[in-house]
Design a protein around this nucleic acid. Structure first.
Length: 859
RNA sequence: GGGCGUGUAGCUCAGUUGGCCAGAGCACCUCGCUUACACCGAGGGGGUCGCCCGUUCGAGUCGGGCCGCGCCCACCA
């Protein structure tokens, strides 16, 4: 490694201020700017996860984004032109919720726009202020902008080598255009469709949600045994249920086909208690005869299994739940709502109508008990209930009109795509396959919300005022983005909105994942900037955490598969979570979140990155400030070792001639090879560990051993060590650059031109060449034996409670002939480093060292 | 219920195709201000490698079976 210029080393090197100094310099010099003129083969494109800006900043972000950054920096040093944009996920429910709480408002689409609206200084205590949809969206944009600044500040402080000129947002105009364009393509190809069907529904947010957004939560409940009766026989038919409030919605009773206990009922009808409604008694193989009485009631709709039965058995619907989670009024006596005792049905149901599910359940149990239709006492159970992951009450299944993307028919193709993808670590693919195998239905992408990308369609209204949902009017591609609630479709006038013979806009917005699933296309400006897109797509890397494989990773593959018939990227690097020291996932609700800005201030960015980069790919890692201290120590060490090697360094010789110098380089070459192959395998943690491990050894042994020669003053002695120091140091500085970008840049700047982050990643072969024939000549062994003896000498001094520089009168080394010969090669450095007056060698079977210290000088 | 991962010193973790008395860092103890570094250095104590079988000359490493922990998935009435 030729030195760029003579080193300028500070008197007292320090980490203080390096973050600011270098992040400003990188920004000024455009260090991480993507060069779009680079040829396609050289481009390495990263599909950065856009963080949800309305969420909190936490150490988990620092953790996984550091992993990606080490890869980006490695690739850049390998000569790749790295495409590394940042995105902000500001679209969707988290932002809406945050705006509601922050300003004390709620969106009411019926309120007209008020251009002068200003949110109150303090949110009102009781009722939120209803505001128009455009006003609400303005507030969303306003708040996310400040959130985005906070994130950018964190990322810059952490030293992410992002090209900040390419930042996008998921609700921005570009994202809206790309999202709508993709949707129109799906619509035209029949891959998106609209359907009125049972839908997973959150009663608080009052929107449809997708299967991927569900989670199970253990909840206490009770099992109620309820008496139905055979319609003809009057025989009792006992049914166990956890949802008695849905008895009025019952459309059938089911038994297993082989269950003899209920054969008398099967084929006939049963009558519901309280409501006197006749329902058929049928069989279905999914019924588990082991559960309860073996007889199960099918409702509209108690859970997803009810939907399966409804669909497969062609059952009618009898909906009782409204979108707000309260029981609807029901027209008893009309078709579908017949009863053997209408008066009783009406009076019973009147007790329930308008109440929430929980209230209704409580009340109906009382009614059943009073009527003697409750058998025995309710049995308390704890059962898993499905919740919307962001919701507070269980999911209901409610029939509504929604947009879907055809997913099920792609199942096999998607699994195949998953196999084409290189997963890091590989076992993460299993989660993807599990998920794809388990898909229950097509992906519901419409949400009855406000802050998101609207569907670019309108519907004609016929003369009678009916909306023709089956004849959507698609926006034309060159008009995008459109907001159908304000824009007018071609061929219509604005005043025809909502009028017979006119049109109406689709009221919904797309699910946030429906846009986030297009991040490679958004970042690459698909359909907008063909040259750029073709350069970066398909991308090289999708980094993300394992909890969103079923959402982000899966949907991105799906969209790319449908729109481009390709994988969106060739590699997926899956990172783990940060756990608190008790091994619990860090989360805001648990109150165990540590603010990352504080960490950066206390330990420094390099130290925090060191901790993050120690977390192996895919592995959950404990939050550990201790590791940050270690990282800081390492950064300081690099500073000091660089100072030692470079300050007043004598001129280098033509060749590395000393056996110990060559042996060190031979080992260094191996470390480089290992770090490189680890990085190629996306195992940044291993690359760091190997580098760090050898670096400490290098400081503790090699640097100590060569000190004498380094200060010797005779060029024929210093030439080799000087050359070896330059080479090794430049290698270490480059090896650490992806992990400790600030201190690496600092020490690099002392003696090299240009940024270390654009320096060439070290080549093992090159270093091995400088090490010449270290292996064959026994020089490797020389370094080992020399270090072994030095350790023994140190031990003797330490145990004698003497300083390390204390002179040693005599050292006797017993060892094999081969090792003794090797020792000879390094003995000049050894006697200097150990202050040894006489070094004797005795051939022996086993290694042993006698150390005779010089007498302690009188005080 | 199915699957994936994991279990090595008090803590955080290495241990790559089985091979010399099982390693590192932190923490702890002792010593040392030696001209790169006291934001340091040198040294030390500490482990039946979750448990039980098996394969092998030899197993932390391979096979089988348990147990613990974490996560993912599931049609958990």
């Amino acid at each position: 490694m030729p030195s760029g210029r003579s080193p300028v080393v500070p008197e007292r090197p320090s980490l203080d201020g390096l973050e600011q100094k270098w992040s400003e310099a990188w920004e000024r010099d455009g260090c991480y700017r993507f060069d779009r003129e680079a040829p396609r083969e050289r481009v390495y494109a990263i599909d950065t996860p856009p963080p949800t800006v309305s969420g909190s900043l936490h150490v988990g972000h620092v953790f996984s984004y550091t992993h990606t950054d080490t890869i980006a920096r490695y690739q850049r040093m390998r000569g790749s032109e790295v495409f590394y944009p940042m995105g902000w996920d500001d679209n969707g429910l988290p932002t809406e919720r945050r705006v509601q709480n922050y300003y004390g408002v709620r969106c009411d689409p019926s309120v007209p726009y008020n251009p002068d609206f200003k949110p109150p200084e303090k949110p009102p205590e009781n009722e939120p202020i209803p505001i128009s949809r455009p006003n609400f969206i303005e507030l969303c944009l306003q708040l996310t902008e400040t959130d985005e600044q906070a994130f950018e500040e964190l990322w810059r402080g952490l030293g992410l080598s992002v090209d900040w000129s390419m930042t996008y947002t998921t609700v921005g105009t570009l994202a809206q255009r790309i999202s709508q364009r993709s949707f129109l393509g799906l619509l035209a190809r029949g891959e998106a469709y609209q359907l009125e069907a049972p839908t997973l529904w959150d009663v608080d947010f009052q929107t449809a949600v997708a299967q991927a957004e569900l989670e199970d939560r253990e909840r206490p409940g009770a099992m109620y045994r309820v008496r139905f009766r055979g319609a003809e026989s009057g025989a009792e038919a006992l049914v166990d249920t956890t949802r008695p409030e849905l008895i009025a919605a019952c459309v059938a009773l089911l038994a297993h086909p082989d269950d003899a206990r209920h054969s008398g009922l099967v084929g006939g009808e049963a009558v519901t208690p309280l409501f006197g409604t006749r329902v058929p008694v049928l069989t279905h193989p999914l019924v588990d005869p082991e559960k309860g009485t073996g007889l199960v009631m099918v409702c509209t709709f108690g859970d997803v299994t009810d939907v399966v039965w409804w669909r497969e058995l062609g059952l009618p619907v009898r909906p009782v739940l409204g979108p707000d989670g309260r029981l609807l009024d029901v027209p008893w006596g009309t078709p579908g709502w017949e009863s053997e005792d209408l008066e009783r049905a009406r009076s019973s149901y009147a007790e329930l109508a308008g109440s929430t599910v929980n209230q209704a359940r409580k009340r109906i149990v009382e009614l059943l008990r009073d009527a003697g239709e409750l058998v025995g006492e309710p049995e308390p159970v704890t059962h898993a209930v499905k919740f919307f992951e962001k919701g507070d009450r269980p999911i209901e299944i409610i029939t509504s009109r929604q947009w879907f993307i055809r997913t099920i028919e792609q199942r096999d193709a998607l699994i195949e795509r998953g196999r084409e993808l290189k997963w890091h670590p590989p076992y993460m693919r299993a989660r993807y396959e599990d998920w794809v195998q388990g898909l229950a239905g097509d992906w519901c992408i419409s949400r009855q919300r406000f802050f998101g990308v609207p569907f670019p369609v309108w519907y004609p209204i016929d003369a009678s005022g009916a909306v023709a949902h089956d004849q959507p009017i698609a926006a034309s591609v060159d008009e995008l983005p459109v907001d159908p609630s304000t824009d007018v479709p071609d061929g219509y006038a604005a005043d025809q909105r909502g009028a017979p013979g006119g049109f109406i806009g689709d009221p919904d917005v797309m699910d946030t994942w429906a846009t986030s699933s297009l991040t490679p296309q958004i970042a690459g400006h698909a359909g907008e900037d063909r040259e750029l897109f073709e350069k970066v797509f398909p991308m090289d890397l999708r980094p993300q955490a394992h909890d969103i494989i079923r959402t982000w990773l899966f949907t991105t593959i799906l969209r790319s598969h449908l729109d481009h018939d390709a994988l969106p990227w060739s590699n997926a690097a899956i990172s783990g979570w940060v756990l608190d020291p008790d091994r619990k996932k860090m989360s805001k609700s648990k109150g165990n979140v540590v603010t990352p800005i504080h960490l950066l201030e206390e330990y420094g960015a390099d130290a925090v990155r060191y901790w993050a980069a120690s977390g192996r790919p895919g592995t959950d890692t404990a939050f550990d400030p201790q590791q940050m201290k270690v990282g800081r120590r390492l950064a300081v060490k690099l500073l000091n070792a660089s100072k030692f090697a470079l300050a007043d360094l004598p001129p280098e010789g033509e060749q590395v001639t000393h056996p110990l110098d060559r042996a060190m380089l031979a080992r260094l070459a191996e470390v480089v090879a290992e770090a490189t192959s680890s990085f190629e395998d996306y195992d940044y943690a291993r690359a760091l560990e190997r580098t760090e491990d050898f670096f400490w050894w290098y400081c503790d042994f090699y640097l100590e051993l060569v000190k004498g020669r380094r200060y010797d003053g005779h060029p024929e002695v210093t030439g080799s060590v000087s050359r070896a120091l330059r080479l090794s140091l430049s290698v270490f500085q480059r090896l650490f650059a992806p992990f400790l970008p600030f201190v690496s840049e600092e020490v690099w700047s002392w003696w090299q031109a240009g940024s270390v982050h654009h320096a060439r990643w070290p080549e093992a072969a090159e270093i091995a060449a400088a090490a010449a024939d270290a292996e064959r000549n026994g020089e490797r062994m020389a370094l080992e034996v020399t270090a072994d003896v030095l350790r023994e000498v140190r031990k003797a001094k330490s145990q004698a409670r003497r300083p390390m520089r204390a002179p040693v009168r005599r050292v006797v080394v017993r060892d094999t002939a081969q090792r003794l010969r090797a020792l000879e090669l390094g003995s000049d450095d050894l006697v200097a480093a150990g202050a040894i007056e006489s070094l004797e060698r005795v051939e022996d079977e086993a290694f042993a060292v006698e150390v005779e210290l010089a007498p302690e000088p009188p005080r």
